[in-house]
């Protein structure tokens, strides 16, 4: 394969912690050959060179201000393939927790008397602004899943990631269900692909990968009730990463719209 055959790839970041891009860098620890398969033309955090002729764009972070929309549209115009990288870009993620409060109140609280009108509005996933061709879910992304998705893109294959609940992976690992410890877990309605890492570490799934396409909310309610877990606890858990969906998609916590 000639070097001219290597697809040009770029990484962009908006409002986020850059943890997903760091995970991309860390994925090279086990897959250093990935660097040979692509031509990275832009990756601000890791390199100074900057090229604008990318074909595949990975975008991390949420859109949180009008200026971001212009940047996103430029990226969409240039790239053949735009992939949302991580929960902030895919779902809005934790950035959208502040959407429950008014913009004015949030600014007043953080900046006090010095609050000036800022170029800031309720946080949203990038798909609210531009169409995307796929996403790598999670907060942060799973590095092995990222590598799998990168391979699918390079091979021109359709992107396929699990559409079954985290419970499946949890059971395959023979974990004891954290519901038995009275912990709320969003596993039954959340997309697998992370190896059920959170329940494997003794905490309930917090839904960072987003819901599967047909979440069984009735089953979820029954599981909560059977284990004496207040629905209030469940709502607080789902708000962490899916506030945007709850507020802006007007999806109620029971999954109906």
């Amino acid at each position: 394969m000639k070097s001219t055959d290597k697809p040009k790839v770029a990484f962009f970041d908006f409002a986020g912690c850059e943890g997903c891009q760091l995970t991309v860098i860390d994925s090279l620890q086990n897959h250093p050959a990935l660097l040979d398969a692509v031509d990275i033309v832009q990756f601000r955090e890791a390199m100074s060179e900057k090229g604008d002729d990318y074909k595949i764009a990975f975008v991390e972070g949420s859109c949180t201000r009008p200026a971001d929309e212009n940047r996103l549209k430029t990226i969409r115009e240039q790239a053949q393939i735009v992939i949302a990288l991580g929960a902030c870009a895919h779902l809005g993620g934790v950035n959208a927790l502040r959407n429950w409060q008014s913009q004015a109140e949030v600014q007043r609280y953080v900046y006090g008397r010095m609050a000036v009108s800022q170029d800031s509005y309720p946080a949203r996933p990038i798909e609210a602004v531009i169409p995307i061709d796929g996403f790598v879910p999670g907060c942060p992304i799973d590095r092995e899943e990222f590598v799998q998705i990168a391979k699918m893109l390079l091979q021109g294959r359709q992107l396929r990631i699990p559409d079954y609940p985290v419970c499946v992976e949890c059971k395959l690992k023979e974990n004891e269900c954290v519901f038995n410890y009275g912990k709320a877990c969003l596993g039954p309605i959340t997309r697998a692909g992370c190896g059920a890492i959170c329940p494997s570490n003794g905490v309930g799934c917090d839904g960072c990968r987003g819901p599967i396409s047909t979440p069984n909310m009735e089953g979820m309610k029954i599981a909560l009730a059977e284990h004496g877990i207040d629905e209030d606890v469940f709502i607080k858990q789902i708000k962490l990463f899916q506030s945007y969906q709850l507020i802006h998609d007007k999806r109620d916590v029971h999954g109906s719209q």
């Binding site: 912690c17 850059e18 943890g19 760091l22 972070g61 993620g93 934790v94 409060q101 962490l240």
Partner: peptide, 28 residues
Amino acid sequence: EAPRFFEAMLRGLPYEQASHLASRICGI
């Protein structure tokens, strides 16, 4: 950098969740 308003988001959170939100301030 786009302001992210973490202090406003920590407000109203049950104390058990604080560290899970706080870690998302930064990936490094």
